[in-house]
């Protein structure tokens, strides 16, 4: 009975002969070679990249066929064919992995994009301020210094320098006032909710 090694050698020899004929311009031999190689490449990629999806495996297989075609002049018919094809496959798989990593690093995967009118995610901005009346009442209950600091720095979006000039308070005092004011406001609005 013929051993597996002999079978592989016979197959390699046959594919090598087909490639030699293809290098001489025999289109039929080339089509036969590529058709016989296709399932071998699929199995090899699936075995070594089992985590990839079918479409990605197919991409690598087709890239390998195109690469093999592009460098078919480098095949030496006196040398074994399968190591030659395997080396091209290995390099294309490595290139594919790099491409996959680049794509994964720059891509944000989303199932669907929220629609402007219906989706909750699309309406976050409109609702994030909560109850404006509660905010107004909370502000009214803050001490004068804190309320003034929040009005200038948060509502009017003045810079610390501008707010300091307008109120006559130091930058440090304004920072402390706005920090305490926001904390107090949170507590007041938390109580209401």
């Amino acid at each position: 009975m013929e051993s597996l090694k002999d079978q592989a050698n016979d197959r390699g020899q046959r594919l090598g002969d087909l490639m030699a004929a293809a290098q001489d311009g025999d289109a039929a031999a080339y089509a036969t070679l590529l058709a016989e190689l296709l399932p071998l490449l699929r199995v090899a990629v699936r075995r070594q990249r089992s985590f990839l999806q079918a479409a990605d495996i197919e991409d690598i297989v087709q890239e390998t066929l195109i690469s093999l075609h592009a460098v078919r002049a480098t095949y030496d018919p006196t040398r074994p064919f399968l190591p030659w094809a395997a080396a091209i496959l290995r390099h294309r798989m490595a290139d594919g992995a790099r491409k996959y990593a680049r794509r994964a690093a720059n891509e944000v995967a989303v199932e669907f994009l929220p629609e402007t009118f219906d989706g909750d995610a699309a309406n976050m901005l409109g609702e994030s301020y909560g109850d404006p009346e509660a905010l107004r009442q909370g502000m009214a209950r803050l001490p004068e210094g804190q309320r003034q600091a929040i009005e200038m720095l948060k509502l009017k979006e003045m810079s610390l320098k501008e707010a300091s000039a307008a109120s006559g308070q130091s930058v440090g005092a304004l920072k402390v006032a706005v920090h305490r004011g926001v904390k107090a406001l949170r507590a007041l609005m938390g109580d209401r909710s």
Binding site: A22, Q23, A27, A28, A73, Y75
Partner: peptide, 10 residues
């Protein structure tokens, strides 16, 4: 690819 199998110089 087969249709593009022009002879190549090894």
């Amino acid at each position: 690819l087969a249709a593009d199998a022009a002879p190549v110089r090894r």
